[in-house]
Nucleic acid binder design. Structure first.
Lengths: 195, 195
DNA sequence: TAGCTTGTTGACCGTTGCTCAGCAAGCCGG
DNA sequence: CCGGCTTGCTGAGCAACGGTCAACAAGCTA
């Protein structure tokens, strides 16, 4: 987040860690306006005030860079959704759902662009997001205290796709009050898993 | 290094319509193996046995080309799913669902790659597929004889996201017999729309 | 001071999307 | 047969982008 105003001549030397973090941060800031894979190295380097070559010093290639950005975005969401340890099961699920809707509300385009980018095109990128979804399902499975079989996992993942889609539409056109949306999602989850 | 050969057929001259169709066809054939946006004009032109320039004679730019390819793919599916006129309502829905699963089963990677490509990255491309989904919802709404309000449409679209996701998983790991999958999907649809 | 480590750069290359001036294959009226 | 028109088609070439490489320079330590 440190402002990198560009003084005329002197070079700005940073530690490897700092530089990497800065580059990923720039990627995160660009994410809302640009499909991940379309970030140009030039643009990122320009914003960081460094040469293209330096970016390739930290990331072997473009893909490695934008998967790192994607992973950072996914981690941010993950940390926001994760329930505090010790929360009662039912509350865990409801809380995660509530925070998920909040997350989408807060970041709107930003988040939708991210999901879109994560779902499409590059398998390496989609793998990152799919892993996050799998982890979410893992948590939900435990919280719901459901038996763990393959079909149920598929259903939970599919329910998450349902939720993603519906919430994505809802933030653009809130067809029902927020609490009812949450109730509806919880209800569908119940009906989907109760078999 | 380019082909300096002028084989027996120095040049294959076609009508504009023919050429366009051929180019789109080549795009469709490449779709399973390559994310739409990553098709290279070079590759397509090479397969068609023409110069790159000619492709730009028929499509203003790359995007116009691959949205045309995407639209062609979407239309193929649409035509396959559309119920025959005169089919009784319930049968329409069940039939479409059945044919949808069949479609995914038949084309597997091909279809999943398509959906992935259509969902991600370029808004122009995703718009094409979203329009198809909207049309499907339109048909389903009529077939189910449900009142037509904004929330219900959202729910139907979200249910379709659920279906897409579940069927996509299921073809990779059939966790339940096919008829039960269909029943399950129909059941979830009922529960989602019965409010 | 020399010497090492390492953050950093500019010059260069191959590929790809895209443009443009013009060739060539049919088809017309004379 | 001929000139000219239309139109499918090409090759050379440009700009932008991803990626490589040898070398510079900013700090640290001996």
């Amino acid at each position: 987040m440190t402002a990198s105003s560009r003084p005329p001549h002197p070079r700005e030397r940073r530690t490897a860690q700092d530089r990497r973090a800065q580059l990923v941060q720039i990627g995160l800031e660009l994410l809302p306006t640009t499909p991940v894979q379309e970030l140009t190295i030039d643009e990122v380097a320009r914003r960081a005030g460094i040469s293209r070559s330096l970016l390739f010093h930290y990331f072997a290639n473009k893909r490695e860079y934008y998967t790192a950005v994607t992973r950072a975005a996914a981690d941010l969401m993950w940390e926001h959704l994760l329930p505090a340890p010790g929360t009662p099961p039912e509350e865990q699920v409801v809380g995660m759902l509530d925070r998920y809707v909040g997350w989408v509300e807060t970041f709107r385009e930003s988040h939708l662009a991210f999901v879109r980018g994560a779902g499409g095109g590059d398998p390496w990128v989609s793998e990152v997001y799919e892993e996050t979804r799998r982890r979410l399902v893992e948590v939900a499975l435990a919280a719901l205290e459901l038996p763990d079989d393959a079909l149920r996992r598929q259903l939970l993942l599919a329910w998450f796709a349902f939720t993603e889609d519906l919430v994505g539409q809802w933030v653009h056109e809130p067809t029902t009050p927020r609490p009812e949306l949450l109730e509806l999602l919880r209800d569908v989850l119940r009906k989907v898993t109760e078999r």
